[in-house]
Design a protein around this nucleic acid. Structure first.
Lengths: 133, 133
DNA sequence: CGTAGGGTTTCCAGCAACAGGAGAGTCAAC
DNA sequence: GTTGACTCTCCTGTTGCTGGAAACCCTACG
């Protein structure tokens, strides 16, 4: 199938599929004489795999690792688990960061009257070197 | 003061201070004859303000807006609150996204034995079109 | 058979928000 | 007067694409 059919099947934009081919992440099964990329079912499966992994926030590099394990029949599930666990820790860390951000900003927003006067705890809070002061 | 003194005072790398000057976000108070950027206390306050706002995840564009309000004595706190509230919603939305991501991935990781056998629910889960299947 | 329309190819630019480095000028101290 | 630190501008690279231009290709229609 050509690139637009593959694009439809895997749920990625044509541009992205082409990009993945360019960087050697998911290469087409072959090319026509005119140079058109041709994808088979296996290539589409790999594209779907990458889309899902990207949705999980895995970087292109991690996708490459996972894709290597995806096709490797001698892989150990421990290898996969290690990568996934690392990503899980990243997510948890980001969550904590967002939480404190949210709390701090919400605190400022609550303190702000939000009327037409210029006095604003949010501006004041941002202008201060450390938020806790 | 020169750029490295300003950098130290505001807590931003020299490169970033220079970048902010280039894009017109925080311009130096003046220049020496040799072209060296000179910052005064007011400029440093603006740099600190931007650093803090960036730490809160405000984009450069939003920093520009906030900086405009920061200096504006006729501002209404409602304007500031509107921008901050918008950002707060972005944070909350990102939090929800991360949460479902975390849950889904944690689910897969838990199901994975993590030994030297190739069977791996994580790989299987990523390969599937929709995770819920 | 010609052509109109789609699809496809390559390459080039650009997004955010800087970081790194080259090469040249500047400044203060010894 | 020369060393060494600092600064300047300009260019490239980062991540993961997205959009566009110019050219080629393919099919259908008349």
């Amino acid at each position: 199938m050509n690139i637009s059919a593959a694009s439809t099947m895997c749920g990625l934009p044509v541009k992205t599929v082409r990009y993945y081919a360019d960087i050697g992440l998911v290469v087409p099964a072959s090319r026509t004489e005119a140079g058109y990329r041709l994808y088979d079912d296996e290539a589409v499966r790999r594209l779907v795999f990458v889309r899902r992994a990207r949705e999980f926030g895995f970087s292109i590099g991690e996708c490459r690792e996972l894709l290597g394990l995806y096709a490797d029949r001698r892989r150990s599930s421990a290898d996969v688990k290690r990568i996934a666990t690392r990503r899980l820790r990243q997510i948890a860390s980001k969550q904590r960061e967002l939480q404190s951000l949210h709390d701090e900003l919400a605190h400022l927003v609550e303190a702000c009257s939000g009327d037409d006067r210029p006095d604003c705890p949010i501006i004041d809070g941002l202008g201060r070197r450390h938020s806790g002061e």
